[in-house]
Write a protein that binds this DNA or RNA. Sequence first.
DNA 1: CGGGTTTGACCAGCGC
DNA 2: GCGCTGGTCAAACCCG
Length: 299
Amino acid sequence: MSDDQNKYPYQPYNSFHHDQNMVSGFLGSNPVGFDPSHMSFTDFFHETVDYNTLSRAFDISCSSSHAVNYPANDTCNSKKNISVREAAGEINENPLTPNSAESSSSSAAGGEEESSKSKEDPPKKVCDDGDEKCKKVNKPIQKVEKKKREPRFAFKTKSEIDNLEDGYRWRKYGQKAVKNSPFPRSYYRCTAQKCTVKKRIERSFQDPSVVITTYESQHNHHSPAMLRGRATDMVAPPLQPKIPSFQQDYTSSQMIPTSNQNHANSMFYNNLNPQQHHQLPEYNFMPDMFPSFAHKEDT
DNA sequence: CGGGTTTGACCAGCGC
DNA sequence: GCGCTGGTCAAACCCG
């Protein structure tokens, strides 16, 4: 790795997505507030792109309540396992309904109810001996819990490093080959106890220099990095909204107007050659799913 | 030895 | 029903 790459390992992109199940924010090559010479990506991530904040600020998953409660028949969540690519552009129905984050506690009860209902489904296989296979099957409760759809936030970064330092500790629990991509997708979960946050990391097959990180759920604890030395800088706890700077960053100059994609690419994907520009439209905005607070430029 | 990674197997959902 | 795919599990392995 070159010196420059050591100094500037991350070059966050600048695109932004919001769909039924996932918000994804792609920062610009030089986003407002990110000065690689004075700020690590971790710091930048926490100070401007804290996804705990985003998940509340951007009305994730149809609405904030849906971000917590995932009825099986909810149209917001009926499509399982929304991928980064799907979220990036293939879903543009169901206009976003702005909502507050305050219904989370009450709606969580509904989620539990739904879960318990699902728990009534018996395992398809019953263990009657020490069969190795049965060990994996007889975990109905865990399986059910995993069916909950958590809010997601995808983060696209230009980096040679796959696993970007975001201040939290992660444990890798799986890796899968990605269809139509030579690059595998890695699965991580937060190592903190009782923290259900997961993240997936994959490299864009269209632009191998781009790493797509997808976070799921919300941390229920502070970042270890914060506790180490950044606490004084982090006045707001992770779950406390800290929107204004980020909001302004995106609304003022960094939103990519869908109807002016080429212009947007030339503006914000300026690290790429023209050929690569044409490879990015799958990360277009979805106008209907655009965060309610963000204005779109007229074109 | 504890914690993290690797990797093959398994499971569930979806489309045909 | 079957095959495909994404997601997860867990034993084996690695490493400090």
